[in-house]
Amino acid sequence: MFVINCPFCGEREQSEFKAGGEAHIVRPKQPTELSDDEWAEYLFMRKNIKGVQFERWNHAHGCRKWFNMVRDTSNDEIKAVYKMGEKPPIE
């Protein structure tokens, strides 16, 4: 269990949030022009990183807003939290 600093509400328990998986996957502008391989790559394939990962979270039982998080998945340590559309604060 960990505490998440929601960029809109401040620190809340993780149980208030819903994980949304890998962040910064850009939806292709013209899905119809993609090959099946490219579409599968966009839709299903994930990095599933052990280590520092950029991911999306939703404050489901709070403000219900989506935001991004940088978290080390090997020990659940949160490195940074930032709003949708903002540049990641760490590389």
Partner: peptide, 11 residues
């Protein structure tokens, strides 16, 4: 959520 921490949440 994705995690390799072998802990999991209390809730």
């Amino acid at each position: 959520y994705i995690s390799y921490s072998q802990k999991g949440s209390h809730d």
